[in-house]
Structure formats: structure tokens, C-alpha cells
Design a binder for these strands. Structure first.
Lengths: 218, 218
DNA sequence: TGGGGTTGGATAGCCATGGTATCCAATATT
DNA sequence: AATATTGGATACCATGGCTATCCAACCCCA
């Protein structure tokens, strides 16, 4: 198909597609002449992934490119590839070698997980813990005792659902890690509402409080 | 204390503090003269919250202001306040009244939770589900059956830990929802690594693979 | 064969965001 | 009185993510 059809299929403006091409997020179509190139279904899919990464996950174009490149040509080691992909995910932190992350270390020890300061997610955790702490809501043991196992159960499932086949695995793992994060966040926010509504007994019933089911319509 | 001391205490540059004052994120100190104002511990804390909200949670200055204002003068209804705060959290979506969110509705029905399209988090969920779907990894029933209960357990704890006192409750609830999100995300990413390492048997042991504990040092 | 409608490719512009930097005049401080 | 700080206002700037415009080469259809 031609680029104009890509525009139609994806709803992304032409100027933006050209921008993605320029930035190397989207591979060029197969040139059939100097002024014509052929695009395929792979391009349609790629554009969806780009949008998911930039709009939903919130990656910058640059970070999105890094992640896409990893998905295109994963390195030998799946862990390494996944690690690099995670490093590109927000909040984007580059772990300093020779740096120590005491809060993260403590948490991981309590969870019985390995602590390796070279891992981007460790630096990310440290940052998040420090922020929570300075905001006045540190992650105490009781909370960790709840968060840890439940998150782990989720992660177990995630890993279990990664396909065996190598190339697909990288793409699936990277995308799954990134794309399901917003889903989890939204689910938690909604669960907060629901739990709060039930516990506090539909609270101060205000003008059609958003916590009670309403008959049907809209 | 004077503003220069605030700079020292928080490590935030003077120009930036002035910027926060201008933007209404940080309340002005108590003016003791035309060229002097007195700041207190509350300001130090506030700055920490601002940084957590903008840097860690990733809120824009404008959204951060909205959230802070809600924390300062919560409205009568805690649900409404919390709902508005959540609406400011990324990915910032403004739910269109009269809009339907089919994917979110289906998920919530399966979870036995109330579906109310006026809720920002519902729109956020819809967006996240749509993104996952178009990226090729839809949220299927099996995954939902794992995510749902585990996230709910987390939410139960979260709500249970909100203090009874009204004004503190809002601040705690809003901050807790926001600042623990990055923690949960980081924990999941790390759990992925850990689970993957154990399952796939420390994988292809590469140069000091980040999945094996190393003796001790650094 | 010719002419309108696409293309690719390149370049320039635009707007919002999140700061920085500079000035200034009014004080404090010593 | 001399020097250093402030508050307050204004101007400036870099980055990011597009968006717009041009152009010339084409294709396709008549």
C-alpha cells in the first residue's frame, strides 16, 4: 500500500509519519521508484506499537527508538536485551556503576530477591522509594508485605506467558512489560474507588456519587 | 528561614523556587518587609512533594498545581476530591461525558466492580486496554484473572491505611496513590527479572549476568 | 503524450514546557 | 555608609514533538 493508505488505516497524519520515518522509528517502505514506496501490514502494526509506546507508555521519541531497535535486533542475551529495554522506560534513570541504592537493596533483601546495582530497575526503585519517603509516605514493612507477593504473582504470570520462540519472546516481553503497566495502574486506581466505596459505605452520598451503580443508561 | 536557606535545605536552585512561587505551586513566605519573607518547615516539605509529583510521578507543572490545590483545600466529598486528583494523574485523560468505554466496562464487569464512565480512571483504563490491544497483547481473561485479585489486594491495603482524619486523609490518599505507583512498577520490573532468572535457569550466563548474586562487594 | 494528483525528501517553522538569567530597587546587616 | 540579600518582574533559552511548505520526480489515466 502507499503511504496515503497508511495514513487512512492508522489515523496518523502524513506529516507525523514522515517524522517517524525521519526519526528512524518507522522503517522505510520498499521503494518501487523514486517517488513511490510500498508499505505493508507490518508498517501498520509498527505504527500502533509506536503510538502505544509514545502516547500510552509515555516514552520520548528517542527512547521509543531504542526500545524498537532492541525489538528489531535483540542481542544474544534475552536478559540483557530486556534489561536495556527497561532502562529506556520511564522514569528513565541511568544507573551509575559503583553507585549504591540502599533503599532498594533493603527492599529486595526483604523480598529475597537479588540486588544488582547495575540494573536500571534498581535505580528506578531507589528513586521511587526516595520520593515516597520525602513525600512523607515511606514504604513500610507492612505495605511491602502486601505489595511484594501480589506483584510477584503478577510477574510470575507475565513471565509464564512469554512465548518460547526467541525472537518473538523479546518483542513480547518488552511490549508486555511496558504496555501492561498503564493497565495495572488504572486497575489500582479503580480498585481504590471501589474498595473505598464499599468500606466507607458509599460515603457522603453526593449528587450521583460516582461510586454507586446507576440504573442503566449512559 | 529565608529563601536562601530553602535553597540549601532542598537543593533546588533559587531560580527554580522563584519559578514555583510564580506558578503557584509553592505558597509565598510570610513577608516581614518589602524585601524579606519568612519560610518554614511546611515549605521544605512542600518542595519535596512538588519534586515527587513532577519528577517521580511525572506530572506537568500545571497538573501538579491542580493536585496540590486539591490537597490544600479538599472539597466536601472525599471521593470527588480523589477522583479529581486521579484525573490529573498521567496519562491525563478527560473523560467525555456521554462517552462509552467498552473495553473498560467489560473488564470492570468481570471484576464485579462498578462501571461509571464519568470516572477519569475508567477512561485511562480504556486507553491502556486499547493500546495493549493494538500493540498485539490484549488483556485476556487469564491475565485479568491474575491481575484483578492481586491488584485488588493491594488496593485493599492502600485504602485501609488511609488515616481517618478528614484533611489528612485527602493528602494521604492522593499522595499515596501517586507516589506508590512508580514503586509498584519498579517492583514488577524487578520481579520479572527475578522470576525469569529462576525459571530459565540463570539463562545464558553472560559476563556477570545481572541475574546472579555476586559475592558481596558493590 | 500530457497533465493532474501523489510521492519522497529536505528544510523551516511553531508552540508548549520548564526552567535560567538578568535587572532593579528596597532593604538588612555590619 | 557600604555591602549583600531579597522579592519581584521580565526576558531569554533549549528541548521536544510535531506541522507546514517546497520541490521535483514520478505515476496513471485519458
Amino acid at each position: 500500500m502507499r503511504i496515503s493508505e497508511l495514513v487512512e488505516r492508522t489515523g496518523v497524519p502524513l506529516a507525523t509519519l514522515k517524522f517517524y520515518l525521519r526519526e528512524g522509528l518507522l522503517p522505510a517502505g520498499e521503494a518501487t521508484s523514486a517517488t513511490r514506496a510500498e508499505y505493508g501490514e507490518a508498517h501498520v502494526r509498527r505504527i500502533a506499537v509506536i503510538r502505544a509506546l509514545t502516547e500510552t507508555v509515555g516514552l520520548s521519541v528517542q527512547k521509543a527508538r531504542e526500545v524498537l531497535q532492541l525489538m528489531d535486533r535483540p542481542e544474544d542475551d534475552l536478559f540483557e536485551t530486556l534489561g536495556k529495554a527497561i532502562a529506556a522506560l520511564p522514569p528513565s534513570v541511568t544507573p551509575e556503576a559503583a553507585e549504591d541504592y540502599p533503599r532498594a537493596r533493603e527492599v529486595l533483601e526483604k523480598l529475597g530477591q537479588v540486588y544488582d546495582p547495575r540494573f536500571a530497575a534498581v535505580a528506578q526503585l531507589e528513586l521511587a522509594l526516595a520520593a515516597a519517603e520525602s513525600a512523607g509516605i515511606p514504604l513500610d514493612d507492612r505495605r511491602l508485605a502486601v505489595y511484594g507477593p501480589n506483584i510477584r504473582a503478577i510477574a510470575e504470570f507475565d513471565v509464564g506467558s512469554i512465548p518460547r520462540e526467541a525472537t518473538a519472546a523479546v518483542e513480547y516481553a518488552v511490549l508486555g512489560t511496558a504496555v501492561h503497566e498503564p493497565v495495572l495502574i488504572a486497575l489500582r486506581r479503580l480498585a481504590h474507588q471501589d474498595v473505598a466505596a464499599r468500606r466507607l459505605g458509599q460515603g457522603s452520598a453526593k449528587a450521583g456519587a460516582p461510586t454507586r451503580p446507576r440504573p442503566k443508561g449512559r
